[in-house]
């Protein structure tokens, strides 16, 4: 049974939030969440890159790495190149994903600089940070095994939606965190807990609240 869009959205934004349930992208979550403007900029950049990267990596995974079967075609096999029995998954997945993501971020940066200077000014400084953001790579990897079909992963269109929703979940978490941290800066915090420790504890309480979304609408992630 194919996964529905709404199911993906609720699952990826609320139930298994990238940051608060999957522990992905924690460095920007704690590093760039002091000001709301920074948090929003980073969040938007992640949505953008994560959608594109999810599409590209799903395309590669489904049509280059997996062995040919009824559901997906291996383009290398179609071209007559040898495809080992288990496909190229084991040896090429990690390296091809990271190269595609790194290249994509560079490419997006160049395109934005040339064609959308306003957008580039808003997101530009966050883009290089995203190459090593484990949320993007993590989402690409999750797309290959999540959602009821761990052998084949999500098809390309669903993977793109999942990437977008994961980005939205990241933005949501960043936004909430920046609000909390701005309030925290005005409060009396014991000296030893100032800064990062209290931010971690607040994130823990947020994660606790997000656990309330488990099984929302009966969706099991």
């Amino acid at each position: 049974m194919e996964v529905g869009y709404l199911e993906l959205a609720v699952g990826s934004i609320l139930i298994s939030n990238v940051v608060l349930a999957k522990f992905l992208g924690l460095c920007p979550f704690f590093g760039v969440s002091r000001r709301t403007s920074d948090a929003v900029g980073m969040g938007l950049a992640v949505i953008f890159v994560m959608s594109i990267a999810s599409a590209a990596t799903a395309l590669i995974y489904r049509h280059l790495l997996l062995p040919t079967n009824l559901e997906h075609t291996n383009l290398l096999g179609v071209l007559g190149l040898p495809v080992p029995e288990g496909g190229y998954v084991l040896i090429l997945k990690t390296i091809s994903f990271i190269l595609v993501i790194a290249g994509l971020v560079q490419f997006v940066e160049m395109v934005l600089k040339k064609s959308a200077p306003a957008l580039y000014r808003a997101l530009g400084i966050y883009l290089p940070l995203i190459t090593t953001n484990c949320a993007v790579m993590g989402m690409a990897l999750l797309n290959t095994e999540a959602w009821r079909d761990p052998a084949n992963g999500l098809p390309v269109h669903l993977a793109t939606v999942n990437g977008f929703c994961g980005g939205v979940g990241f933005l949501l978490a960043m936004l909430l965190m920046s609000g909390i941290r701005q309030r925290l800066a005005e409060r009396r915090v014991p000296k030893a807990l100032q800064g990062l420790p209290i931010a971690f504890i607040s994130a823990g309480l947020m994660a606790l609240a997000f656990m309330g979304f488990t099984k929302l609408f009966g969706i099991a992630v």
Binding site: L20, A21, F23, P190, K191, A192, L193, Q194, L196, P197, I198, A199, F200, I201, A203, G204, L205, A207, L208, F210, M211
Partner: peptide, 25 residues
């Protein structure tokens, strides 16, 4: 049980950070 789940991870590491910063201070 919550310490083994996602929120517990954040809270435990936050408290450990606090402890080390206390000792450091």
């Amino acid at each position: 049980t919550v310490l083994g789940m996602a929120p517990g991870a954040f809270i435990v590491i936050g408290l450990l950070f606090g402890l080390f910063s206390l000792v450091g201070n």
